[in-house]
C-alpha cells in the first residue's frame, strides 16, 4: 500500500469529519472509557440496554481519524445487537485489522461499513486506534476487560 486513500477510505474520512452518535448519554445504563497511552487518544462510550439488546449507543472523545471513525461506525453497527452478537462482531473485526482472518470470505461476514478498516492491518501501530472504542464498549458491557497495553513514552 502506498496510496493514503487505501487506508483513509472516504467512509472513514466522512465519519472522522462528522462522527455519528457523538454525544453524551445522561440516561445511559452503562459507560466506559478507553485510553491509549501510546498516543493519548481517549474516548468514552455510553450505552443503553433494553433487556439484552443495545437500544442506544454513543461516544465522545479525542483521537485520530482511525479511532474516531471506528468509534462512529461501531455505534452504527452495534445498535440493536445483544452483547453476544457484539462480542462476535468484535472478534471478527479484530481478526481483520490484525490480519489474522482467513481472507475475503471471512470479511464478507462483517458489515461492509466495518470492512473499510481492512487497510489498518498494514499499520500495526494503528490497530489500537481501530479497536479502542470496541474495547471500551466491551468493558461497558461488563466483559472483555483486558490487561492494559504497553505503556506510552
Amino acid at each position: 500500500m502506498s496510496d493514503p486513500s487505501e487506508l483513509y477510505q472516504s467512509v472513514i474520512l466522512d465519519h472522522n469529519r462528522a462522527p455519528r452518535n457523538y454525544r453524551e448519554m445522561p440516561e445511559a445504563s452503562a459507560q466506559a472509557e478507553g485510553y491509549n497511552p501510546m498516543c493519548g487518544d481517549q474516548l468514552k462510550v455510553w450505552l443503553r440496554l433494553d433487556g439484552d439488546r443495545i437500544v442506544d449507543v454513543s461516544f465522545q472523545g479525542s483521537g485520530c481519524a482511525i479511532s474516531k471513525a471506528s468509534a462512529s461506525l461501531m455505534t452504527t453497527a452495534v445498535k440493536g445487537k445483544t452483547p453476544a452478537e457484539v462480542e462476535h462482531l468484535f472478534q471478527r473485526f479484530q481478526r481483520m485489522v490484525t490480519g489474522q482472518d482467513s481472507g475475503q470470505a471471512e470479511q464478507d461476514e462483517l458489515p461492509a461499513r466495518l470492512v473499510v478498516f481492512a487497510g489498518v492491518r498494514e499499520f500495526p501501530s494503528r490497530v489500537k486506534c481501530a479497536t479502542l472504542s470496541w474495547h471500551a464498549l466491551r468493558s461497558a458491557l461488563g466483559g472483555g476487560r483486558e490487561r492494559p497495553g504497553p505503556g506510552g513514552g
Binding site: G40, D41, C64, F123, R126
Partner: peptide
Amino acid sequence: VHPHDVGTVLDLRGIAVRASH
C-alpha cells in the same frame, strides 16, 4: 488533522516523523 494521521500519510511517502505527545 490528528498528528497520528499526519504521521501515517507521511510514512506512506517514506517519511519518518514522530507523531505523539
